[in-house]
Nucleic acid binder design. Sequence first.
DNA 1: TTAGGGTTAG
Length: 536
Amino acid sequence: MLFLANVLINMYVKFNLLTDAHNVFEKMPLRNVVSWTTMIAAYSKSKQQQKALELLVSMLREGVRPNVYTYSSVLRSCKEMSDVRMLHCGIIKDGLESDVFVRSALIDVFAKLGEPEDALSVFDEMITGDAIVWNSIIGGFAQNSKNDEAMKLFKRMKRAGFTAEQATLTSVLRACTGLTLLELGMQAHVHIVKYDQDLILNNALVDMYCKCGSLEDARRVFSGMKERDVITWSTMISGLAQNGYSQEALKLFESMKASGTKPNYITIVGVLFACSHAGLLEDGWYYFRSMKKLYGIDPVREHYGCMIDLLGKAGKLDDAVKLLNEMEWEPDAVTWRTLLGACRVQGNMVLAEYVAKKIIELDPDDSGTYTVLSNIYANSQKWESVEEIRTQMRDRGIKKEPGCSWIEVNKKIHAFIIGDESHPLILEVNKKLNQLIDRMVGIGYVPETNFVLQDLEGEQMEDSLRHHSEKLALAFGLITLPVGKVIRIRKNLRICGDCHVFFKLASKLEKRSVVIRDPIRYHHFEDGKCSCGDYW
DNA sequence: TTAGGGTTAG
């Protein structure tokens, strides 16, 4: 009888008839661990996390102990660390911690809740390996932007004799994307060729090439794909927009619709971002106002953010503020920061001061905003306020993050940190940089020393302006990379106004393409121009 | 009866 009822529940679940399954389950006079687990797994899979957890509690109350199936499904439903910890204790008590299913579920949930170190300790207790567990841990670190760690684990995995398969390679690509390591990503691409029609892997590949600033490769992968889903299209649309190809992004959006793929809210973020990147005010308004009617998607915070960016940078600061006030949510630090960026482009210091204060209220650890505020006060000779900001920073223990830039040469990463002279070629780098600056001054370059609103994240003051980390990385690239090769630099802070002018001139004088990726966006410098249209 | 991978304004 019990066996038959379990079979029946299972059948309903398979056909996605959860209510029917639950009805049978409720009427059972006797339930065993299989009955409970089938229901818990079904709720867990259909994203009814609360229900799954409630069922587990009832199950324990009736004195039925969970097995490995129960634990691995219910773990996926945890949204709170406290629940995971409780389950982890139960797992140890029941002696199930060495099961690979349980282990990979634990690793996965720790990583998803942003605790990759806990995931690693579960992983490290493992004696015999399993490919899936390796994939879980590598994916966990990649998802938490711990890209160096993900790459190290990948090397360990290979040393341990495991072969990389689709899931591994997808995480590796994600890590390369986060680190902007094009060469390494291309190396991974070689291993991917055998899975050339894996949709997820191809999507990750398109993203990697876009984010590493290699649009030709991204387009090639994209056109070679036999199957594309909404993520493929969205990735390519955002990628084009981020790299300054707004018109192409909007055209691709039309092709996407023609292909019959329905856009989701992320697609529309990409579309609006394309508009904001190119200052396409009317198009932006059109998509924003019609998204609900045409695609059934309600505008959320991110869409408002794009519009605020678009309006503000196009000189409509008043409209941007109006839209921000019209939102049905309280603006968060990110939204205010969008407006601060617009104040920078428009040179509106009065509004910038107000906005910077709002950001600090919401995000008191944001060191860059203190610098912006302090620069605003310094510029209007409000020295008392400058001192106040410094005291605040000291009291709150906030330190400026030093500017750092990375460049990949011969598959090795070279880091340049402002004020750090430890790079073995630093003397040559400085020599090259000084030569370059002298040549630029000769054609009219004046280093920008007015930092007010120039330096969005406040890297350093004038004295070190000459040696901002991206300038050092550029000089190093010019010395070491062959003529004609694109110089790709990633940096931890946003590029400042002076470096932006500098890089435009450098691209012309040295006849080099340079791509800089800052934490927010991409700049392609070529022949004296930047893909952002001085609009960042 | 169970597992691992991809897109989002600043």
